[in-house]
Amino acid sequence: MKKCYGPTFRAAQLDLAKCPICRGKAVVKGVFHELACIQCNASGWVSAEAGEALSLEVLVTQLSIRLQAAEHQVELLKREPLMSGPAAQYERNNRRGAGGSNFTGD
């Protein structure tokens, strides 16, 4: 690990795992009703290395980092064309026809 003095400039993403007690549901089944899981502070996530609950400040930061990464993945998937294979050739302009128009070879 690199020596560092003072606070870090970026929050590092920690490895999280689903809570083994509640299996990521944040609640455990009681006799008559569901109770908040005390192992993971009712979040469903624990530290993957130690298996301990994270403090609320760290947990909120880690979940925000994961949410932003998931939203970025969704945006990337939205940008990609849905069609692939031979059908995609008919939809895009390959500029091989007369005057730079689409030529499909039919």
Score class of each variant (00 low, 15 high):
residue 1 M to V: 12
residue 1 M to K: 10
residue 1 M to L: 10
residue 2 K to E: 12
residue 3 K to Y: 11
residue 3 K to M: 12
residue 3 K to D: 13
residue 3 K to N: 06
residue 3 K to L: 15
residue 3 K to T: 13
residue 4 C to N: 07
residue 4 C to H: 09
residue 4 C to V: 06
residue 6 G to R: 10
residue 8 T to H: 10
residue 10 R to Q: 15
residue 10 R to H: 09
residue 12 A to L: 00
residue 13 Q to A: 15
residue 14 L to N: 03
residue 14 L to Y: 02
residue 16 L to V: 02
residue 16 L to R: 00
residue 16 L to E: 08
residue 17 A to S: 15
residue 18 K to V: 12
residue 19 C to W: 02
residue 19 C to H: 04
residue 20 P to T: 12
residue 20 P to V: 01
residue 20 P to D: 10
residue 22 C to H: 12
residue 23 R to A: 12
residue 23 R to T: 14
residue 24 G to F: 03
residue 25 K to D: 07
residue 26 A to H: 14
residue 26 A to Q: 10
residue 27 V to G: 01
residue 27 V to D: 05
residue 28 V to W: 03
residue 28 V to D: 01
residue 29 K to W: 06
residue 30 G to V: 09
residue 30 G to W: 00
residue 31 V to W: 06
residue 32 F to V: 10
residue 33 H to Y: 08
residue 33 H to W: 08
residue 34 E to I: 00
residue 37 C to A: 05
residue 37 C to T: 06
residue 37 C to W: 01
residue 37 C to D: 04
residue 40 C to P: 05
residue 41 N to R: 13
residue 42 A to Q: 11
residue 42 A to D: 11
residue 45 W to I: 07
residue 45 W to D: 03
residue 46 V to H: 05
residue 48 A to L: 03
residue 49 E to M: 08
residue 52 E to L: 09
residue 52 E to K: 14
residue 52 E to H: 06
residue 52 E to R: 07
residue 53 A to G: 11
residue 54 L to G: 00
residue 55 S to G: 15
residue 56 L to E: 15
residue 57 E to I: 09
residue 57 E to P: 01
residue 58 V to I: 12
residue 58 V to Q: 07
residue 58 V to F: 00
residue 58 V to R: 09
residue 59 L to S: 12
residue 60 V to M: 10
residue 62 Q to A: 06
residue 62 Q to W: 11
residue 62 Q to M: 05
residue 63 L to I: 03
residue 63 L to A: 04
residue 65 I to E: 03
residue 67 L to F: 07
residue 67 L to C: 08
residue 67 L to V: 09
residue 69 A to L: 06
residue 69 A to P: 02
residue 70 A to K: 09
residue 70 A to Y: 10
residue 72 H to V: 04
residue 73 Q to K: 11
residue 73 Q to W: 06
residue 75 E to M: 08
residue 76 L to V: 15
residue 77 L to V: 02
residue 77 L to F: 00
residue 77 L to K: 09
residue 78 K to E: 13
residue 78 K to L: 11
residue 78 K to M: 05
residue 78 K to W: 04
residue 80 E to T: 11
residue 80 E to F: 04
residue 81 P to A: 07
residue 82 L to C: 02
residue 82 L to Q: 13
residue 82 L to A: 15
residue 84 S to I: 04
residue 84 S to R: 13
residue 85 G to T: 08
residue 86 P to R: 10
residue 86 P to E: 15
residue 86 P to W: 00
residue 86 P to N: 06
residue 87 A to H: 02
residue 87 A to P: 00
residue 88 A to G: 01
residue 90 Y to P: 00
residue 91 E to Q: 14
residue 92 R to F: 15
residue 92 R to G: 08
residue 92 R to K: 12
residue 93 N to Q: 05
residue 94 N to Q: 02
residue 94 N to V: 10
residue 94 N to L: 09
residue 94 N to A: 03
residue 94 N to G: 08
residue 95 R to G: 04
residue 95 R to I: 01
residue 96 R to V: 01
residue 96 R to Q: 15
residue 97 G to N: 03
residue 97 G to L: 01
residue 97 G to D: 05
residue 99 G to W: 13
residue 100 G to W: 08
residue 100 G to F: 04
residue 102 N to H: 10
residue 104 T to Y: 01
residue 104 T to P: 04
residue 104 T to E: 06
